[in-house]
Write a protein that binds this DNA or RNA. Structure first.
Lengths: 137, 137
DNA sequence: GATAGACCTTCCAGTAACTAGAAGGCCAAA
DNA sequence: TTTGGCCTTCTAGTTACTGGAAGGTCTATC
């Protein structure tokens, strides 16, 4: 069985060495085995685990959510429905964020369209920002 | 001219007292005047400034960007074009975020659609997360 | 054997933008 | 006078890392 130092694992997984140590320190992943010189060593299995973490993080799951997914992953008796529940909740979060950002984009766009953008100081964007309260609260 | 205590300003602007103090401590807004008992007091003008900050934050400008906008707001010789540049850059940021989130949503949705979500342990979501590297890097 | 460079270790601090809480002062009303 | 609510400052926690310092280790080269 091949073993890897932290730098090699970082290169393989796309998770930086710093971040791997950080994940270990927070308990997201189990403590790595150590060589006689104190260096961390990782098995294929440990690398696989980190890859799982990376994929889930790339999909926008929070570190806490990844922890939950890892527990389900490790649990032979897990129910598919539980994982699906997490994923659906996550999807809803994403959709809320998209909605909020689209509102933001529209407002910002409108503001920009009103602005002549010239060499003069009168600026509808600043005027709007400074305008009376309650306009959109 | 009416003066307000920090709590009243918080109620008027929607910015919490804690956050107002925080903005002062970071230099985003100038230090408030003080009453003889040491309490902060705010003029209409100061309230107006805070309202500006709130609106810009609500539009998703970072605190640093708000600082730039405040400087332009205060600057009688400002050019409308400069403000517009900030706003356009901000709009582009928002659009990038929306694109990234939409990709995320699509991937997550596909994952969920593949999952039967039943009482059995086999789960395509976990399998996908654990799958071979390089699939989407 | 010495030394250089790349790698590893730990620990501390900083990022963004607040928020929570502790400990205590001030003020108005009953 | 005491109660409650507001105000003050200071410290620390949040999320998910990242940067840097100080130092040990390994490998290759001279």
């Amino acid at each position: 069985m091949s073993l890897y130092a932290i730098g090699a694992v970082a290169a393989q997984t796309g998770v930086s060495a710093k971040t791997i140590r950080y994940y270990e320190s927070t308990g997201l992943i189990p403590p790595a085995a150590r060589a006689s010189n104190g260096y961390r060593v990782y098995s294929e299995r440990a690398v696989h685990l980190l890859r799982f973490v990376k994929r889930a993080r790339d999909l926008g799951f929070s570190v806490e959510q990844v922890g939950n997914l890892l527990a389900l992953w490790a649990d032979e008796k897990r129910e598919s429905a539980e994982v699906k529940k997490l994923a659906v909740a996550h999807l809803e979060e994403i959709e809320h964020k998209i909605d909020a950002l689209q509102d933001l984009r529209n407002t910002t766009r409108t503001l920009i369209e009103c602005c002549h953008g010239e060499d003069r100081p009168d600026c509808p964007i600043l005027e709007n920002l400074a305008s009376q309260p309650g306009d959109d609260d």
